[in-house]
Design a protein around this nucleic acid. Sequence first.
DNA 1: CGACCCCATGTAATCGATTACATGCAACTT
DNA 2: AAGTTGCATGTAATCGATTACATGGGGTCG
Lengths: 358, 358
Amino acid sequence: MDDLGQAGGTEPEDTRVRAARIQDVARLADVSTATVSRALATPERVSPEARARVLEAIAKTGYVPNPAARSLRSQKTFMVLVVLPDLSNTFFSKILRGIEETLFEAGYGMIISDLDGSPEKEAHFAAFTAAGRVDGAILLNGHLFGQTREGEGQPARISIPLVALCEAIPGADIPQIEIDNRAAASRMTQHLASLGHRRIAYVSGPANNILERERFSGFKDGLEAAGQPFDPTLVLPGDYTIESGVAAGQALVARATRPTAVFCTSDEMAIGLMRTLFSAGLRVPQDMSVAGFDDIEFAAVAEPALTTIHQPRRELGQAAASALIALLQGRPSPKRIRLETDLVIRDSVASLERSSRA
Amino acid sequence: MDDLGQAGGTEPEDTRVRAARIQDVARLADVSTATVSRALATPERVSPEARARVLEAIAKTGYVPNPAARSLRSQKTFMVLVVLPDLSNTFFSKILRGIEETLFEAGYGMIISDLDGSPEKEAHFAAFTAAGRVDGAILLNGHLFGQTREGEGQPARISIPLVALCEAIPGADIPQIEIDNRAAASRMTQHLASLGHRRIAYVSGPANNILERERFSGFKDGLEAAGQPFDPTLVLPGDYTIESGVAAGQALVARATRPTAVFCTSDEMAIGLMRTLFSAGLRVPQDMSVAGFDDIEFAAVAEPALTTIHQPRRELGQAAASALIALLQGRPSPKRIRLETDLVIRDSVASLERSSRA
DNA sequence: CGACCCCATGTAATCGATTACATGCAACTT
DNA sequence: AAGTTGCATGTAATCGATTACATGGGGTCG
């Protein structure tokens, strides 16, 4: 309990001052605390003179309302929880930015929870929301809280407004903001097929992941639309990370007959996979075409520049935040928002000239 | 004010229940609220029987202490603000993860503020901390709050524990967690020089940025150590982004006499710059060597794989969070922590065989 | 000119947990 | 046996802002 030893102690006088309270402002402005509160919340209900005195007193004292007190009384925190599976994944950063921007404009703060695949953390944050520590949450992880241990002495569930972003949550009756993963994957597959590719490999996302299921369906849709049979041996497991792309590349390189094109369901995997191909002496797209998904910043500057599906990440974040804010303010929110994707054609996919007629 | 229209309304009964309060628990366990509080905060000060009854009641009601009330009374929020200049920058994501992990283990939540170069946002978050909404803050943006408009009716400044991460804050008497940017830049420069490079270009970070100043000093140190003169025409402006790397590449390509090596002070710029070189038909490292800084995930899988300075990003985040937690708990914290960097040699830098003897 | 209304403002209850202080009881000391 | 100590527990003040309700004064209407 030794208080000393803290960094910051060279200044002679203790600058750590007690924050000004509403009472201090009230006294200085010679009004009651109620008037101060009203001057801030409902200025039109306070006389101009009183308002002016209050504002002056606020400026003089540097008063900022104590959020804990305000929150205790009004049962609002002006905080939103953002739940995501992996904070260090590049894909999320721009989405987060979109969320943060929009929340900020509406006066909300953002608390981030990186689940990191840990059920304990999930339980913790479930309790966190239940404790009323946030007004709402944006879920990027594809499922609701507490779906784990059901039954038992389940206490009264506190439900706060939720919004699902990117990974739709099947059973949940909450706004879902997403792209049409299935259609996008189908489109990319057909693009590859249209360039003559007959042996198209698919590097998947994590099993049971909703995005993966959608994209995989889209992949099969695309093959079907192109009149091509689905070959399970051309499906390689992945989990959207660079490393899994590298591993998938190694698996492909080791094969006797290789696909002519690979559709990776994330750019990170595509970039990792290309790396492995280069190391093995293969060229992209001459020896193998590679397509990605997401259009992260590095897709455009990869070598070769990556053909991929563009996701409006910032807009996705903004849309999710807007939907949540609508709910928080008691306004209706659309149940499902689907933002448009684009097929971005760059240099990693080539037309298959010869031997395209198998 | 129409309440209807909200998503979530198919269930017949309203599941939104009032959360259990400490009084509910107290009544159920047949003790006072003080005992409930003590059973949680200081279990050893409560009889085993009472404690058991309290815990049972808590389990039954699903009680979670109201953080607003707790915070109001105890003047603690168990929240930490993380201030960063650009959330969508890849470099920060792993740092954030390190921070989040460590904070989480200590029971702290993380609020993120992406300043985005906006003074308004900065002012907002300054007020935010002043309002006691967080117990401490980790600053990744290289300066303290409120250094903008000084003077004026500066209200009593509330100071909370702060920690500077990555970008040291010159005057501030707070723990600084960083790497030795100057030494690292010098090392890379000497590495390039040792491979025979005599014309080494430097792509800078934003002007006035402390990192930039350090790295630039290191660059000059390195040249001096290698016995090379500093040539201002070989300094190209950048701001750590991919785009600025692309721009720097264009500037280089346009030159009559080009450098044989380029030291980019971020991997993102290096990757962007390489992209431009390829587009211009130049090869890396045969025609020009390129070095980066940071060792982000994509550095290892870039083509060619990027020679760079490795920063222990996760550890940096963890160290900053640990230092802050120490301060928050009244323990001393070292004023300055410098984590080790590594020179990671990959394929983007080559030895200059011929013409190295200028 | 009296009744009524509205507006600006003040008073005080309230949100829910923490904790200083008070109390009562049991065990121990001399 | 009286006094002391210490533990478990309860009572109630407290944190700071919001807001329902009360109040008083000025204006309007009949």
